[in-house]
Nucleic acid binder design. Structure first.
Length: 563
DNA sequence: TGTGTAGGTCC
DNA sequence: AGGACCTACAC
């Protein structure tokens, strides 16, 4: 068999049609056992190809570059092969039209129909549009790149013909991100913090198993080495260079450079890659420095209004370069990771529930659960999605026809607010912020305005944004999937009207919905219909962290306390 | 001028 | 790693 790296093979052996920088079209109406493959080292066939190219060169001068660069060396005079090779046809090639080589001489007697046609169009290599000429991945595109550098570099003076054809027919190397960075959870660090900037984790990383962002270079088996560079760019187009820097292992000047030896390993995991942020007043200086070093993957250039840049989010940008078999430098990328958000920033970190007034609810519904949250965002992260789920518009109520909740109170009789707080002291944790509100009787949303200033602001934030509760979606989804139908009449003592009052925390409400009928028998008393949020023995601050762990155990009965 | 908040620093 | 603190700035 043919060695994919050396391009050497045994005459007469079978080989698969290769595709590479040129489009190779194998149109084989029929295969004859014992035929020779022109791609394998069958010198006579190469001679014929050479002759054919010369003919085409005469007919088609614009493709002269091909004929100049591709000169084939005859090595065989096998008459049988000669007759087969006469069937070879090569069409002229230009930037848009693929070179077609019918592989009618192949000895693939056992090829299926789908294997007889192979065609891949690979255009002109995308050179990086930047001015970092000193760096290998910043090569300006040639004015008239014809079917890539790897093709134009073919020269009989430099390469044996098999290598030349190998270069033509191998798939083009490709740069790929195989492990995206974790988007949230890492804090950008200032230089003044005098510490490591930590490590960007991979999206699949867990506490038990650390996984780092990783890239892979595909189709690079024949390459000695591939240099990979990572830098930081804006989250959005035009993906300008970001003032923040990558720091850590293999980093310098705000970028990270590593060398991959594909014969040993085609992948690279970026360990100890941190993000060091610059102060706002240092943005311009940082950007200038990078641009002077030629770090500008998308050639997005200079930008004057430094307020434009979002300092709380970056993308990793990967580029790679390698030398082909003729010594020409080829580039891969740039490719972009998913955005990485600064954990410290309120605007980009995940919402966190710091405190909640209770973790249990009446099965009859109609209760309110109050959450105090940290990292409440004022952009619209996740809001639209959750609003579509039909959660109540609490802030909207304040500007609605019943801002004080008087009409709402008149319509329903619900437990007093004190009841909410103290109805189940065995599990609920009444926290200071709420204790300031305890004297109020069942407040409507607007009544929070009459609380202490601190509590009011916390409450407003919490209520307006409680639906950010990131885990609630997965919880709600799970519960949605588990929901069994509950007839209102089955709920002992509960009125349909009560049930139709959605409580604030949607997952809890769905939880109530999901109560199996056998737990809602007429023997139950009103007070027994208490739905407990699983993990309610946790302090509220611990609750959020634990949601994920209890989700898989959520069959109804096991998570429902009867008190 | 008071207040809240984002940015930045310290521990 | 992440909370606390300080400061500058916007409103």
């Amino acid at each position: 068999m043919r060695d994919p790296r050396s391009g050497r093979g045994e005459p007469g052996s079978q080989c698969s049609p290769r595709v590479s920088a040129l489009s190779i079209v194998a149109s084989v109406p029929s295969m004859t056992s014992g035929m020779m493959c022109p791609i394998c080292p069958s010198e006579l066939s190469l001679e014929l190809i050479d002759e054919y190219i010369k003919e085409k060169e005469a007919e088609d001068p614009p493709n002269q570059v091909i004929a100049e660069n591709l000169k084939l060396v005859p090595r065989s005079t096998d008459p049988e092969l000669l007759s087969q090779c006469r069937a070879l046809e090569i069409s002229p090639v230009n930037d848009t039209k693929p070179l077609e080589i019918p592989l009618s001489l192949c000895s693939h007697a056992d090829l299926g129909p789908s294997e007889r046609m192979q065609s891949v169009t690979v255009g002109v290599h995308m050179a990086l549009p930047c001015d970092r000429r000193s760096e290998p991945w910043c090569i300006k595109p040639a004015p008239h790149s014809v079917a890539s550098c790897s093709f134009s570099s073919l020269s009989s003076n430099v390469l044996p013909v098999n290598d030349a054809l190998e270069a033509l027919l191998l798939p083009k190397p490709e740069l790929k991100i195989i492990e995206q960075p974790k988007q949230r959870g890492m804090r950008f660090r200032y230089v003044c913090e005098g510490r490591s900037a930590g490590s960007i984790l991979g999206e699949n990383s867990t506490d038990q198993s650390k996984i780092m962002p990783a890239i892979e270079v595909l189709n690079c088996d024949n390459l000695k080495e591939v240099k990979v560079m990572a830098s930081l760019v804006w989250k959005d187009s035009p993906y300008r260079v970001h003032p923040h820097s990558l720091v850590g292992k293999d980093c310098h000047d705000g970028i990270c450079e590593v060398t991959i030896k594909p014969k040993l390993k085609r992948t690279h995991s970026f360990h100890n890659l941190g993000i060091q942020c610059v102060r706002k007043k240092e943005i311009e200086e940082a950007v200038e420095k990078k641009l002077k070093l030629g770090i500008d993957p998308f050639n997005a250039g200079h930008w004057k209004n430094h307020e434009e840049v979002d300092m709380n989010v970056v993308r990793l940008c990967f580029q790679a370069c390698y030398q082909d078999s003729s010594g020409n430098t080829e580039t891969l990328g740039p490719i972009l990771s998913e955005p990485i958000y600064d954990k410290k920033s309120t605007n980009t970190s995940e919402l966190k529930i710091c405190r909640m007034n209770k973790e249990t609810g009446q099965c009859g519904g109609g209760e309110e659960v109050y959450l105090l949250c940290d990292k409440v965002q004022k952009d619209t992260y996740g809001v639209d999605q959750k609003r579509k789920r039909g959660l109540p518009d609490v802030m909207g109520e304040l500007s609605g026809p019943d801002p004080h909740g008087i009409e709402a109170k008149r319509r329903m009789k619900k437990p007093t607010y004190k009841d909410h707080l103290f109805s189940d002291l065995t599990t609920g944790t009444v926290l200071p912020a709420f204790s300031q509100l305890c004297s109020m009787e069942q407040p409507s949303t607007s009544e929070f305005s009459s609380g202490t200033r601190n509590a009011r602001f916390q409450a407003e934030d919490s209520f307006s944004d409680y639906d950010y509760f990131s885990k609630s979606q997965s919880l709600a989804s799970y519960m949605g999937a588990q929901t069994s139908e509950v007839k209102f009449s089955d709920l002992n003592g509960a009125q349909e009207e009560d049930l139709q009052q959605k409580i604030f925390l949607d997952p809890l409400y769905r939880y109530v919905e999901s109560i199996p009928e056998n737990l809602l028998s007429s023997n139950n008393t009103n007070s027994s219909n208490i739905a407990h949020l699983v993990g309610s023995s946790l302090r509220a601050s611990e609750y959020q962290e634990d949601v994920a762990s209890f989700l898989p155990q959520l069959p109804h009965e096991g998570n429902m306390k009867q008190t």
